[in-house]
Design a binder for these strands. Structure first.
Length: 785
DNA sequence: GTTCTAAGATTTTTT
DNA sequence: ATCTTAGAAC
């Protein structure tokens, strides 16, 4: 074996097939714990080493910043280790730290720095910082490179303002949250306001389309984009401008996508445009020196509420591949060996997921011992459940020296469940860490500071300007602000232009005009330093000048103390950013990265604390001991999914994700009574418990695990609906293109058929609802001839 | 123009 | 039960 390919020896045959793939399309169906990150990183290394691909030509898209960082680090290590062997004849780990660092920075300079690895959002914002000025929207408007990125709360307040103040609509009927959701959903399908109106031809649809259109006006006026735009804009730009598209197409010859099951329509469009350099849906076959390599697992698709569409993964073979059956295909590889969990845990996971109809056939194969039984605990209420979990952790931690606190994870369906557990952890002095929940960058004080910075970087950003104009109080009150805003709206110019116009400001009362003048001067002063001073000095300067820190100091409360500390942490984040991005340490760059970062990204390998998080946050992680709590009907599966078979399948996948996080031990639990909205409600065991194989489980009471699942009380009186058999459906009964009517979703058209025999599922596109997956056996569908 | 109080919503998940 | 928001009091 040559030295170049020595590292391939650590791979099993399917991994190796994936890693050695060079040109053309490949779908890697990667089960949980099957080494998909290894496949991705080794393949990138192999492209560079064996096929001499220029790192600049490689694009790898991940789902989280953390995954991106991990991938970069692992590639760096791979190359540095190889270098170490050839230079010193021994592995990297055995070198003195100084030489290790030296090798790594050499690898960084020559290779990893040039790879584009990041989330869809991070990569798109990088593209847009370069090319957004070449884009014009359908009304001929454009953005400049200093655009702001509005987060979800910015977006929601814009929508709210439009609904209540501009359109004078009842915000009960047009709840800003659900309107914003509809807009986001539209953007994730690449729909314009007109498309949305066409999709939903009724009063509500027209209103929402109108809000969408005004919302877009507001974004343009602020020189701002929301999360969805970050993806949609490059797609539109590529469609509009052939030169720009051709550039990025030739730039990224090898495209890799992680978590492909979580991509939405717009993200798919983006990938397709980059790979094929066109919008045509015809099969693409010019694969010379090009590849598209996607990795995913339909069983771990848990983001459909965010418009993720795993039928995209299921369609890969049709889109790019050879469409041959599984045994003959050269464009799909399955990674089924699981290196993470014990055999018992895997059997549990396999059993559970087998209840889903909508799948690619795939089984997790064990490579480790049987392990211990899974324990199911029935508790009286959520406090007793928490007591059980914490007791178990304490006993195990004391008994096994290798099990530090960091080896335990407690996973739950909703964030609200953490509180009861936290209380008990605190009571017993068990150190813990909550992952997710309130993001660092969502804290009030951090948003205030970022508001100043955004207002400096992007004068058109009126939203940020309004956030800080009177924070801390500088005598610019509501009346003053109102009159200024009204002036800007009447003249149709950004608020900033009014603020800098002396005649406008002089019409204000003495106190107000003084405040406005000094505020404006302060921002101008720091804006003029944007290109000369490093970002950290601007942050520090504006914090002093604005009196923000002084204001916190005066308050003297514990809360204010906390906030000052957080601002300090933000300052550190700026410093760190400058160190890590020496090629572009600008304030603008920092602001982008701040908008796109999540709490999860800073999650270190925690050795000293127990981790608490939602099941969604746990995806991609692993722990020796996992507690899956709150397995109650209505909580998990969540009540909103009970009537919708497709949503229920997603809940089941979520449960599957939770189970497959565990390496050695798995505990599941539920309570018979739980506090909800402040009052106690009886609870019944989750449907999923009944779907687990009893022979692999132990429990605290004999009846803890239901054998056959019966719908809880309320439904049982509703008659024999549970057992009435719907007509048996067979795949031959349906064809793509069939028109159907569904009780809740209205009329639609069949777009895909999944599965075979009588175990099938249909993808149906409903007018205005987008695509849904339905099981014709569970959901009555009326066929329209 | 600021601060306090009471009603009202909120709980699915997040880049 | 807790947090946010709107409106009234100061």
């Amino acid at each position: 074996m040559t030295q170049t390919t020595e590292f391939l020896a650590h791979l099993n045959p399917s991994q190796r097939q994936a890693v050695e793939h060079y040109c053309g399309p490949l779908l890697v169906v990667a089960g949980a714990g099957s080494g998909k990150t290894r496949a991705l990183t080794y393949r990138i290394a192999n492209l560079v080493l064996t096929h001499r691909v220029d790192p600049e030509n490689i694009l790898a898209v991940t789902f989280t910043n953390k995954a991106a960082r991990e991938m970069k680090e692992r590639i760096e290590k791979l190359f540095a280790d190889r270098e170490s062997h050839s230079q010193f004849g021994k592995p990297l780990d055995s070198l003195p730290p100084y030489d290790q660092t030296k090798l790594k920075s050499k690898v960084y300079k020559n290779i990893t720095k040039h790879l584009w690895i990041g989330t869809f959002h991070a990569l798109c914002s990088r593209i847009l910082r370069l090319d957004i000025e070449k884009f014009q929207d359908e009304k001929g408007r454009s953005w400049d490179r200093n655009f702001s990125i509005f987060d979800e709360s910015d977006a929601q307040s814009l929508v709210k303002d439009i609904v209540t103040n501009r359109l004078n609509l009842d915000d009960k009927k047009f709840d800003p949250r659900s309107v914003r959701f509809a807009i986001s959903n539209a953007k994730n399908q690449s729909w314009s306001p007109q498309d949305l109106e066409r999709e939903q031809q009724n009063y509500r649809g027209r209103v929402i389309a109108n809000v969408y259109s005004m919302y877009q006006d507001a974004l343009v006026a602020n020189n701002a984009l929301d999360f969805d735009d970050l993806i949609l804009m490059p797609v539109k730009l590529f469609r509009q401008n052939e030169q720009v598209r051709a550039y990025w197409h030739s730039r990224f010859r090898h495209v890799l996508v992680d978590e492909y099951q979580d991509t939405n329509r717009t993200q798919y469009d983006l990938i397709r445009l980059l790979v094929t350099n066109s919008d045509s849906t015809q099969t693409f076959d010019q694969w010379e020196y090009r590849s598209v390599f996607v990795v995913g697992d339909a069983d771990q698709s848990i983001y459909s509420f965010r418009a993720a569409d795993f039928t995209i993964l299921m369609g890969f073979q049709k889109d790019f591949g050879d469409q041959l059956p599984d045994d003959d295909t050269r464009t799909m590889v399955k990674l089924e060996e699981n290196y993470r969990s014990t055999e018992n845990i895997l059997a549990l996971a396999n059993h559970l997921i087998d209840n889903n109809t909508e799948r690619i056939d795939k089984v997790l194969k064990p490579t480790r011992g049987a392990g211990e039984a899974i324990f199911c605990y029935r508790a009286d209420d959520e406090n007793a459940e928490a007591e059980f979990v914490v007791q178990q952790i304490r006993v195990m931690e004391a008994k096994h020296p290798e099990l530090h606190w960091g080896k335990f994870a407690i996973l739950y369906r909703t964030n609200a469940q953490s509180r009861a557990i936290e209380e008990v952890l605190v009571k017993h002095d068990v150190p813990y860490k909550i992952v997710g929940g309130l993001r660092f960058y969502d804290r009030k004080e951090i948003k205030d500071v970022l508001g100043y910075l955004r207002a400096i970087a992007n004068p058109a950003d009126t939203v940020s300007l309004l956030r800080v104009i009177n924070t801390p109080r500088r005598g610019i009150g509501k009346a003053t602000i109102d009159s200024l805003v009204r002036a800007s709206q009447e003249l149709d110019v950004p608020l900033w232009e009014i603020l800098t116009d002396e005649t406008s400001v002089k019409t204000l009362s003495g106190r107000s005009s003084k405040g406005v003048l000094s505020f404006v001067q302060m921002l101008q002063k720091w804006r003029s330093q944007l290109d000369t001073l490093p970002a950290n000095q601007i942050v520090q300067g504006i914090m002093e000048d604005s009196g923000y820190m002084q204001d916190l100091k005066i308050q003297g409360t514990e809360e204010a103390e906390d906030r000052m500390q957080n601002v300090g942490e933000l300052y550190n984040a700026v410093l760190q950013f400058e160190e890590q991005n020496t090629d572009d340490p600008s304030l603008i760059g920092f602001l982008s990265s701040a908008s796109l970062s999540s709490d999860l990204d800073n999650l270190e390998e925690e050795v000293t604390r127990v981790s608490l998080m939602t099941l969604h946050s746990s995806k991609g992680l692993e722990f020796p001991v996992v507690f899956l709590v709150g397995l109650e009907q209505g909580l998990f599966p969540n009540f909103r999914s009970l009537e919708d078979p497709a949503a229920l399948e997603e809940e089941r996948r979520l449960c599957y994700v939770g189970i497959t996080r565990a390496q050695e031990r798995l505990f599941v639990s539920y309570a018979r009574e739980r506090r909800l909205y402040g009052n106690r409600e009886p609870a019944s065991p989750s449907l999923f418990l009944a779907e687990l194989p009893r022979e692999l489980m132990q429990s605290n009471v004999a009846t803890a695990i239901p054998t056959r699942w019966t719908k809880p009380s309320a439904a049982s009186s509703r008659g024999p609906s549970e057992t009435t058999s719907l007509p048996d459906t067979h795949e031959d009964d349906w064809t793509v293109g069939d028109r159907v009517v569904h009780k809740a979703f209205g009329s639609g058209q069949v777009t895909h058929i999944f599965g075979a025999g009588n175990k099938i599922c249909l993808a149906v596109k409903f007018a205005g609802m987008g695509q849904k997956i339905v099981d014709p056996k569970l959901t009555p569908l009326q066929r329209v001839e």
